Simulated assay, not measured.
Amino acid sequence: MRIDVLTLFPNMFAGPMGESIIGKAQEKGKLTLNVSNFREYSDNKHKTVDDYPYGGGAGMLLKVQPIYDNLQAIQNESPATKKRIILLDPAGQPFNQKLAAEFAQEEHLVFICGHYEGYDERIRTLVTDEVSLGDYVLTGGELGAMVMIDATVRLLPDVLGNESSATGDSYSNGLLEHPQYTRPPAFKGMEVPEILRSGNHQLIADWQLQESLRRTYLRRPDLLADVALTPQMEKMLREIQQEENE
């Protein structure tokens, strides 16, 4: 996968995008990450990238020209690949695990990180997606882009050390992840559930599913509306509801 990032602050990406899973993905050749400063594409001598909005209003807007020319340069470098161009914007669709999985299927992603008050509306005609990290406003799109890149790249084949790690993550199946434990079996009076030490794989799987349902019911019941519950899961959920209501 190739990922390009358009930003006014490329140095923000140097540390986080070179460490951990993202850094290893690049070392393995699974990811090519390019970060460009779209200020360099400004066509005026002062290299300005923003201006006052027509009609008045607070703040400055990013101009269309530098971003357009930066995108054209990327297209010229990689004309054959289909690109998904993502505009980081608080008014965009919320980012989630499903969208990360969609992005992970793409050959080439381009993230545009905004700044200042907003965008010239014509920038929106250049993109395929407008995405928000959440219902809040950051000073720029850089942190949001890093989060989306991390969530996407870890889903690429052979990036994680254990391929089953991603499939068991919270939200991957619509539910929150079940509780997990490691050694020692007992610590300061807190013990690992006996069933997890039983060696009975079916019982363990049933327990994990039940506790995943329990955690989702207690913490994020809104998620259950979008989960296709099997008869077994429906039975478990009824039992959980009864237990919690007693």
Rank of each mutant, 00 (worst) to 15 (best):
Y171R: 01
D129L: 05
Y116D: 00
E130M: 08
V127H: 02
R122N: 04
D169P: 03
M148Y: 12
D120I: 02
G144Q: 14
D135L: 12
V147E: 09
G168Y: 14
P157N: 06
K188Y: 05
E117S: 11
P184A: 05
N162K: 15
R183P: 03
E142V: 12
R122T: 00
M190K: 14
D129N: 05
I195K: 09
I195C: 06
L156Q: 08
E142G: 02
L155H: 06
K188N: 13
G168A: 11
N162G: 08
D129Y: 07
E177R: 11
R197D: 09
S132D: 09
G189D: 13
D135W: 06
N162S: 14
R154K: 11
L156N: 11
G141S: 03
D129T: 03
G189H: 10
E163K: 14
Y119P: 01
I123R: 01
H178D: 13
M190A: 15
R183N: 02
Y116T: 00
P179L: 07
G144S: 14
G118M: 02
I195A: 08
V159N: 05
A186I: 15
E177G: 10
V137H: 08
H178N: 11
L196C: 09
Y119M: 10
V131Q: 07
T139G: 12
L143A: 13
V192P: 09
V153Q: 06
I195R: 04
V137W: 07
P185M: 15
R124W: 03
T182Y: 11
D135V: 14
V159I: 09
S198D: 08
R122W: 02
M190S: 14
S170H: 02
V153W: 06
L175G: 01
V127N: 04
M190L: 13
E117V: 03
L176H: 04
D158M: 10
D169K: 02
